[in-house]
Design a protein around this nucleic acid. Structure first.
Length: 284
DNA sequence: GTTGAGCGTT
């Protein structure tokens, strides 16, 4: 949208787009127009706005008809003080439809760029990109711990699994591109998750009252996914203690094996087997 | 009235 009275992008065929960064959130196209028009014919000015709040997102696109004029505007206006902030003016790199742009001029059509994005840069969809950018920006500027936690989360499988099961991420997406509210929600939510994690994470209090029974629910869960139960047992740190005992007898014999006399004969294996056989029914 | 290191609208 521009204050030129047109809706949607005008003829972008022969225009040169400048990206104007760091403008105030209050700055409008009307404010920018006289400034940029001084250096050439401005075809259009567009300031992306937040869909939810309708507020400016802090940058603008100024389209010039001629490249040299655009270049001049970059030279003159880059670093200029506007509304109390030093704006940055540079040639846009991406077009409105994600076309590749060189010096503000589109050098690739949308179709081509699509082809490219498929093979080279797996650019997410429109909305995702929107959200992603917003998210990134926020985390950087506002809270580092959030950013770090995000990274941590990527590593910690347990955390990811839990959050997914609780459909936290879904909520995120559903809420979409909220800005302030989103942040607030996410913060409070994350805190609640933190407070909850110890309770959920440590099954020990649950198991302590009835250790014998605890095996049965575990068994009911494990055969469902994988009868071997290897991967879940290894991945979950909480269920570490109960699993090796009942499921994988190998872990234990290791300890008993080293002291045992291996030199004597094959009886050793028998001995170990006996141990296993005995131990399994005892636990169950 | 609110944020800030980034690339796009009916």
């Amino acid at each position: 949208m521009s204050h030129f009275g047109r809706s949607g992008p005008p003829d972008i065929s022969d225009t040169y787009s400048l990206l104007v960064l760091n403008i105030t959130f209050r700055t409008t196209a009307d404010d920018l127009f006289p400034l940029f028009d001084k250096y050439g014919k401005v075809v259009d000015i567009f300031i992306p706005k937040d869909r939810r709040t309708g507020e400016s997102r802090g940058f603008a696109f100024v389209r010039y008809k001629y490249a040299d004029e655009a270049q001049k505007a970059v030279d003159r206006l880059d670093g200029r003080m506007v509304d109390g902030r030093e704006i940055t003016v540079q040639f846009a790199k991406y077009g409105p439809n994600a076309e590749r742009i060189h010096k503000g001029r589109i050098i690739e059509t949308a179709e081509r760029s699509r082809h490219r994005s498929r093979s080279r840069s797996p650019r997410k969809r429109y909305r995702d990109d929107y959200r992603d950018r917003d998210y990134k920006r926020r985390s950087r500027s506002r809270s580092y711990d959030r950013y770090e936690r995000e990274r941590h989360r990527g590593r910690d499988k347990d955390y990811r699994r839990r959050s997914r099961s609780r459909s936290t991420s879904l909520d995120y997406k559903g809420r979409g591109r909220g800005r302030f509210d989103d942040e607030r929600h996410s913060r409070s939510r994350s805190r609640s998750v933190d407070s909850r994690s110890p309770a959920q994470r440590s099954p020990s209090p649950r198991r302590s009252p009835s250790p014998q029974r605890s095996t049965s629910p575990q068994r009911s869960i494990s055969p469902r996914k994988s009868p071997q139960g290897e991967s879940p047992a290894n991945h979950s740190p909480g269920g570490h203690s109960p699993t090796p005992r009942s499921v994988s007898p190998r872990g234990r014999p290791d300890a008993s094996r080293s002291p045992s006399p291996r030199n004597s004969n094959g009886d050793v294996s028998n001995f170990g087997l006996e141990h296993e056989v005995i131990k399994l029914p005892t636990l169950q």
